[in-house]
Design a protein around this nucleic acid. Structure first.
Lengths: 241, 241
DNA sequence: CTCTCTATCTTTACATCGTAAAGATGGAAT
DNA sequence: ATTCCATCTTTACGATGTAAAGATAGAGAG
């Protein structure tokens, strides 16, 4: 039954050029401009991750297999093993990339906001927008059971995402969130905001909100529904302008 | 790539005894008291579904395979094909059972409530409680991508679950929900309630609320956190006692 | 400059899975 | 009593994850 190998990870040292990284291999592969898949050396790890993201968004979670990624990158089916050790490893590193993209999208949306109302709506709207733009990635991050959060990259990226949420809630309540202690009200506020947006996103991606959307006036969009939810939630809780 | 056979379904007529159903097979398998797996005849379909639920709650979603279910039921690995046609078929029928259990749990919790506050909290609390008691089933119903909602049993059970939610929201707002048209406020209220409880449940089952729970006063439980969320959400929106 | 080492990649192999198709079996209808 | 056919088993095939052994080529030592 798959043996549940969570500790795997064969890669001894992921091929970091120690000396003279540039111009050491002069003319083996025509520089690296058009070399999508640098045959035996170079940046296979990154190429595999890019290939994995392509496969994921093209074929969905079920299509994201070690062999499909290797095919997409043009290498043998066992090549990913040396870089990620495991399917769990590859998937976890890709999820870490997803969390970083996700955090960046929300941060930039936050920066663009001006009024308090905008600042309150910017994050959740960016949250849902990212999931709609990258449904495969969002599913990888929140639907898969095959993630190894003990990996530093994934742990850090997910932690950073949570910290961003906590800070946003703290800012909205005008009381900075401490790093190591929360009141029950603070915890409830954070959990409520995250639960609502995450739940909305999952239900939306799963098509389960169609039953609601098609009963709303003419062509109401999911974004409008989300905005209605957010405004009714945030009503009266904003700091005075 | 699995060919995505969604239409499969071989079963021509699922062996419904047309005449003289009882006492027609007198003493082949020692009645049906201790006969867990009635060899060649009887209720293999139901036995498979029971076996599937056992496998699911024991080994999780990843362990729920056609062959594992067949092993658990003590039949050959191809036997489920004639009853469910497909892994999608088996999984969808099991999910339908899950939805029915789920609906029954929430209905009985609703009936037991007396005060308006209790009535408002009973459903969401029963929702989360069911998911915690049957994490495999809840994951099957809401995490799997391999469900076929065109199957009548699953469609009906899921629809009934949604109707129960809509009615509860309508009762709380003291304005019965129409079957075919919703105002934006009604849709937002339904989507908000569902999103929040579903999101909370998913985050809780995925262990993602641990970061919050361990920062709360001493040993605050998930139930207490949920109650704090619900009370702050429902504050001032209840009909007068 | 040559030789060896070793990380990287390929090949081969195996258990498991879903699914299709053909063979066996036994209750039920004629 | 005999035939039929739904049900179950057997066999087979392609796909997957993973382990292990073989090939390759860049890097470092002499």
């Amino acid at each position: 039954m798959a043996k549940s190998n969570t500790t795997g990870e064969t890669a001894r040292s992921p091929r970091i050029p120690k000396k003279t990284p540039p111009a050491s291999r002069p003319a083996r592969r025509a520089a690296s401009a058009k070399a999508e898949t640098p045959y035996h050396h170079g940046a296979l790890r990154e190429a595999l991750l890019r290939a994995a993201e392509r496969v994921l968004e093209r074929d969905g979670l079920a299509g994201l297999t070690l062999r499909a990624v290797a095919r997409e990158a043009g290498v043998s089916h066992a090549a990913p093993t040396h870089h990620f050790g495991d399917l769990t490893g590859l998937v976890s590193e890709l999820a870490a990339i997803g969390f970083r993209q996700f955090n960046a999208a929300m941060a930039s949306a936050c920066d663009a906001a001006t009024s308090p109302l905008e600042r309150a709506l910017a994050r959740p709207k960016a949250y849902v927008a990212y999931a709609q733009a990258h449904p495969g990635m969002y599913g990888l991050m929140f639907r898969t059971e095959r993630l190894d959060y003990s990996r530093p990259s994934l742990h850090e990226a997910a932690e950073s995402s949570f910290a961003g949420l906590a800070n946003a809630i703290g800012a909205m309540r005008q009381e900075p969130i401490s790093g190591d202690a929360l009141t029950i009200e603070q915890g409830a506020a954070i959990a409520r905001a995250w639960s609502m947006v995450h739940g909305f996103t999952m239900l939306l991606l799963d098509g389960r909100l169609e039953d609601i959307l098609e009963r709303l006036p003419d062509g109401t969009t999911a974004e409008q529904l989300l905005e209605a939810i957010l405004k009714s939630t945030v009503a009266g809780k904003l700091p005075p302008a």
